[in-house]
Design a protein around this nucleic acid. Structure first.
Length: 289
DNA sequence: AGTATCCCCTGAGCGC
DNA sequence: TGCGCTCAGGGGATAC
């Protein structure tokens, strides 16, 4: 489940269900799920067995479990859900899901953690923790910018970085090095709220407008989190397999042909990077160039 | 160096 | 029924 609110729902679920527990064994059922762990499956499982989960953390759409050990330095099990990844807490012995990729068993014999991923874009790696700009995070995501839910997120810095870009506004919003956590849904929602067209050049955008669109992204993601995230189908669920409800509150995403909630004009869809951009053609005028 | 395109996958839904 | 096409909450690797 892709964007920040959905990943945060999963992180919170993991914190409640696996923090404090010790990993007994890990079974990698599909090698693609750990393709980013370059030392391979034996190293992956070997480094996890016997480790205790100290905390569940998140930055943007990445989440990780901090793993403590009496003798070794702390490491992290870094995860990305890709387009279709789920982390599920399941009773031992529950039937395997069709797309079960990795299983984590615990020494307490309690519910196991399962990674289920239809499209296999998601996956794990075991990584060292490093300090970047005062934050402790896995080295593989040192390039990922702070997200708007981070207490140390700087609106000023994010606005400045956005205005330095020479690209379309939506591309900048999706750039995870700039501000992390925003994906296709919340980018479109933020653009609608701030009445900006997705192709608007970042070059020349005013300080006020840049600030407004980032504030809108923050607001919409916070609201979505309050509803348990956005789910159109069973692919996007929390660790207990339950869906969020924010899809009912979407203003433009997936709303092609339906009336804009502000002006009544039919919402339009345009191709964008092998997917889509949804917007109101009246509220969000294309800037002339 | 910064930006843009191409892929990695599986499955659902649609028109023919 | 089945085929072929489009589409899907992402991002790394490569090409410009």
């Amino acid at each position: 489940m892709p964007e920040l609110p959905e990943v945060e729902v999963v992180r919170a679920g993991l914190d409640g269900h696996v923090t404090g527990r010790t990993i007994a064994a890990v079974a990698v059922l599909h090698p693609r799920a750990i393709r980013r762990h370059l030392l391979g499956p034996a190293d992956f499982t070997g480094r996890l067995a016997g480790r205790t989960i100290a905390a569940a953390q998140r930055r943007g759409k990445y989440l990780w479990l901090e793993l403590s050990d009496e003798t070794n330095p702390d490491i992290a099990l870094l995860a990305h859900l890709g387009m279709s990844g789920q982390l599920l807490v399941q009773p031992v012995g529950a039937p395997d899901e069709k797309h079960l990729r990795v299983r984590f068993d615990f020494t307490d014999g309690g519910p196991e953690l399962r990674f289920v991923d239809q499209r296999t874009f998601g996956g794990f790696l075991v990584d060292d923790l490093v300090t970047v700009d005062g934050a402790r995070l896995p080295s593989a995501i040192a390039h990922i910018g702070r997200d708007p839910m981070d207490p140390d997120f700087s609106v000023r810095a994010a606005v400045a970085a956005l205005r330095r870009k020479k690209t379309e506004l939506k591309r900048a919003l999706l750039d995870q090095t700039l501000v992390s956590g925003i994906g296709n849904i919340y980018a479109d929602e933020a653009l609608w709220r701030s009445k900006l067209h997705w192709t608007r050049p970042t070059e020349g955008i005013s300080l006020a407008k840049a600030t407004e669109v980032l504030a809108a992204a923050t607001d919409v993601m916070r609201e979505a989190l309050g509803q348990g995230g956005t789910s159109f189908d069973a692919l996007y669920v929390n660790v207990n397999g339950q869906s969020g409800y924010f899809d009912r509150s979407l203003a433009v995403y997936g709303q092609e042909g339906l009336p804009c909630g502000r002006c009544g004009t039919a919402i339009r869809r345009e191709p964008f990077m092998n997917r889509s951009s949804y917007f109101c053609p009246r509220c969000q005028r294309r800037s002339r160039s």
